[in-house]
């Protein structure tokens, strides 16, 4: 047990001392996952809004698919993006396999369904409430969609945070397409996996502490946003 205690102490020292190796890994993680969350929002949010307010054949199937894709296994996404980006693959000429860009792409693909499916649900609920009023005022579909996005902005922000949390915590996709190269594509989760198998617990634990703190902070932020918005805007 002393080994474990020492590991914790060493991990704590790394976190508090802002160890440069650890800080670099944390920064890259944030960079990759924030980029992925941003891009996935730009794609997933309008997609969710469109599905919410439009009626077209196959809509129900699409919704089921989107909901199912929320549980997409990260390793499978990693594998697919790997195949796309590998030298023999259709996008191999880009030469971005084993770079942070590839990791951003993989995480973006992973969380687009989450953001699209959850925002579809949120916006559709609002649409049910607003549709007659908005149509009566003469709002066409696109305008109505924009109004719904603005009116549900706080719920949507929580969804984006959920997407970011999922991206930051996954390991399978970035491991495969990033390759876990020291100083280049090594992020928190992949480092934890590697260092644990090597037996270097302090760094793994230190990153674990940072990761858990990040997840808690995100959830607290989401709760505060919901609370404040509810009180201020009803």
């Amino acid at each position: 047990m002393t080994g474990l205690g020492e590991a914790f102490a060493a991990a704590w020292a790394l976190v508090v001392g802002l160890d440069s190796g650890l800080a670099g890994i944390v920064l890259l993680s944030l960079q990759v996952s924030l980029s992925a969350a941003l891009i996935a929002t730009l794609i997933g949010l309008p997609l969710g809004a469109a599905i919410a307010v439009e009626r077209f054949p196959g809509r129900q199937v699409l919704i089921v698919m989107l909901n199912a894709l929320m549980g997409l296994p990260p390793v499978v996404v990693g594998l697919l993006i790997y195949l796309l980006l590998s030298r023999a693959g259709p996008l191999g000429s880009l030469g971005i396999l084993f770079t942070p860009q590839a990791m951003v792409i993989a995480q973006t693909v992973l969380i687009i369904p989450i953001i699209a499916a959850l925002s579809r649900q949120t916006i559709e609920d609002a649409w049910r409430e607003y549709s007659e009023q908005l149509r009566s005022l003469g709002a066409r579909r696109f305008r109505a969609g924009m109004t719904l996005i603005w009116d549900t902005r706080f719920s949507l922000l929580t969804i984006v945070l959920a997407g970011f949390g999922r991206a930051a915590a996954e390991v399978g996709a970035v491991m495969i397409v990033g390759g876990n190269i020291d100083g280049v594509t090594r992020v928190m989760t992949t480092t934890i996996a590697l260092e644990t198998s090597k037996g270097d617990l302090p760094l793994a634990l230190g990153l674990g502490i940072v990761l858990i703190t990040l997840v808690i902070v995100l959830n607290a932020l989401a709760a505060v946003i919901r609370e404040v918005a509810q009180r201020r805007y009803g």
Partner: peptide, 8 residues
Amino acid sequence: FQRPVMLR
């Protein structure tokens, strides 16, 4: 409408 729909 019977139940007013107010925008946020």
